[in-house]
Design a protein around this nucleic acid. Structure first.
Lengths: 226, 226
DNA sequence: GCAAAAGTGTTCAATGTACACCCATGC
DNA sequence: GCATGGGTGTACATTGAACACTTTTGC
């Protein structure tokens, strides 16, 4: 019943953020075979004394130097053919980060050429089965968005309602009604209103809001079908 | 970056069925250490040329001799301490089977003492972290039930509306309103009505229904909050 | 005829959806 | 003063929730 022990186990993390009201994913360009020069989801091998979440956090930190991010296990991919010449089982994760908190770090080694944000709906070809992983991550993100206040993980601490709406729209890839969106968000009771306003633009200043952390416990059915 | 290759990868499958209107889970009693005599979720090692779903199907077939079941990957558990003396990463699955289609098969070897159905809300102590896996499986099953016609995977081809309702109630661990439940199910358009009725009982015969397979595609928001 | 489960509708509340105009600011 | 995005309310439709009595059968 015991098999030869040649499984490799990796974690690959789909890292999302919002920049310029667009959903973006962090990709690295591979510097060696297989799939040299192709873009890939960042990942790494799981250490023997590391649990899976820790491995995902470590990989995330190496690439972005961000800690305390939203991180959720997604799915485990283990087709024998998914990785050339070895059996590699990948536990995939989704991470959401605030783009204002991050600095990208290409590693010292030679195995990465570039690291960059890519708009989710305009991607290059990806290495391995990473396209499948990414598609699944988007699906999960959309589902979460409908019943969980997850969008706040992608935005700065203070944001306008329009920014929040654009975040939803970018993830769901649809347009939402402004009045209904605001009504819904406010009725959920998860926002706190600041007495601060944007000023950079040459338009009417917009009120800033934050996420009210205390409001989340014991909630169900948040944000259905906005 | 490469670690020593001593990860073991297993699949463990939480197998649910409904018997006597009660949600039950298939457990095996271990015949050897670690956790000798404790009950555990059936599982097995993943073969090198097998993908994860195939491994789960194989394990399921070995234990129940049932094919063509609903099978869904659940979560991957990989805490270094979850298995004594080895690093074992487990990809867990949920399976739903119709109890009328099954025969249980204890394996030839000595490593299993018994194999049996246990009511989900009255369980013995489980081996390893199998309690966590099972709790997560129940959570997932409940969530699925609310927007997917998944209950039909647990019932015989023909069933009464009361049996369907008891299935929901057993999974959700609540009581549901009979009229609202029936109205909802019928309005979903996923049932087909047979001109057949139960006759065994000494009460009014109940109409038999089946699941209308064609009705599922392109549906969203099925069965919310019955 | 009675016990036991099957079957059936209506009212009310809550939620979602569609939709158009005035406001505050910088230039 | 005008261009630009910010901000607001109402009417209607859909969905969910509460609730009680009649029907059919075997004994």
């Amino acid at each position: 019943m015991f098999e030869q022990k040649t499984h490799e186990v990796t974690v690959d993390t789909v890292i999302f953020t919002i920049r310029k009201n667009t959903l973006k994913v962090l990709l690295i360009q591979r510097g060696h075979e297989p799939f040299k020069d192709r873009w890939a989801i960042p990942g790494g091998f799981v250490g023997l004394s590391e649990n899976l979440d820790e491995a995902a956090k470590r990989v995330l930190f190496e690439k972005t130097h961000v800690k305390d991010v939203y991180l959720e296990q997604l799915y485990t991919f283990g087709n024998p053919g998914r990785y050339p010449s070895a059996r590699v089982i990948t536990v995939s994760y989704v991470a959401l980060i605030r783009s204002d908190e991050l600095e990208l770090h290409a590693q010292e080694g030679l195995n990465i050429q570039q690291i960059n944000w890519h708009p989710v709906y305009k991607l290059p070809e990806l290495a391995f089965d990473h396209k499948d992983i990414l598609n699944y991550a988007i699906k999960r993100l959309r589902a979460r968005l409908e019943y969980t206040p997850i969008a706040f993980q992608l935005l700065p601490k203070k944001f306008t309602l329009t920014e929040l709406q654009r975040t939803y729209e970018s993830i769901l890839d649809t347009e939402l009604d402004k009045r209904n969106f605001r009504k819904k968000m406010i009725s959920l009771g998860i926002l706190k209103e600041y007495d601060e306003f944007t000023k950079e633009s040459s338009k009417r200043p917009a009120r800033l809001y934050g996420f009210n952390e205390e409001s989340i416990e014991g909630r169900k059915g948040l944000m259905t079908a906005i």
